[in-house]
């Protein structure tokens, strides 16, 4: 017998807080064999899902250590545990989530937002490690049956704005919504 589906998500809104989220931690490791592995093991042990590891071997800090950037995904409630475990193992944690959401971008969605479940739209965008929805404003002057507009403020990791926009674009296309994207302007 399989479990009834309803039990997998008893609180569609209230249960959202502890869904896995992406985090970035920066470590400094001694230039010795096995150091990287000993830093990654605690993350996996504590329930973290490794997304990427950037191991900057060519670059050495003034203290002779090698900087490593680790992207991982875990429920927010477990993140502190991972950091504590790393520190207990004697690993130098330089930054946790300092640059994680380094960029913000705003995008408009236009169309039948209510009929296409705006809550689901936000959830779908947030399911990507590239973006979290920080703010949502909705305007439906003609009532729920008419064309409505939404303004989404997204936080993305530095350099991941294109990826975040790609997710918005995909979700919008699937739901027949019109996405008005921000312009990445000439750097000045």
């Amino acid at each position: 017998m399989t479990e009834p589906e309803a039990e997998t998500d008893p609180e569609p809104d209230g249960g959202r807080d502890d869904r896995p989220q992406a985090h970035t931690i920066r470590l400094e490791l001694a230039d010795e064999p096995g150091e990287l592995l000993s830093a990654l093991e605690p993350i996996a042990d504590e329930g973290g899902n490794l997304l990427s590891i950037f191991h900057e071997r060519g670059h050495i800090t003034p203290r002779g250590r090698i900087p490593v950037e680790v992207d991982l995904e875990c429920p927010p409630s477990r993140f502190e545990g991972i950091l504590e475990r790393l520190r207990n193992e004697g690993i130098n944690v330089v930054d946790a989530d300092a640059e994680r959401y380094g960029e913000h971008l705003t995008v408009l969605l236009v169309g039948d937002l209510v009929g296409t479940d705006i809550s689901d739209t936000v959830t779908r965008v947030e399911s990507s490690p590239a973006a979290t929805v920080e703010d949502l404003s909705l305007s439906a002057p003609g009532g729920p049956a008419e064309q409505a507009s939404a303004r989404l403020r997204l936080a993305t990791r530095a350099g991941a704005a294109d990826e975040a926009l790609g997710i918005v674009r995909t979700v919008a296309a699937e739901k027949g919504l019109h996405a008005i994207e921000p312009l990445t302007e000439v750097s000045r």
């Binding site: 705003t106 408009l108 236009v110 404003s137 305007s139 439906a140 002057p141 064309q147 409505a148 507009s149 939404a150 303004r151 403020r153 019109h178 008005i180 921000p182 312009l183």
Partner: peptide, 21 residues
């Protein structure tokens, strides 16, 4: 043609506007 007034209102609230770029 698919840009409603409500989208421009939401943009304006946030110090932005919509342009055909």
């Amino acid at each position: 043609t698919r840009v409603p007034g409500s989208a421009l209102d939401l943009a304006a609230e946030d110090g932005r506007t919509v342009r055909l770029v």
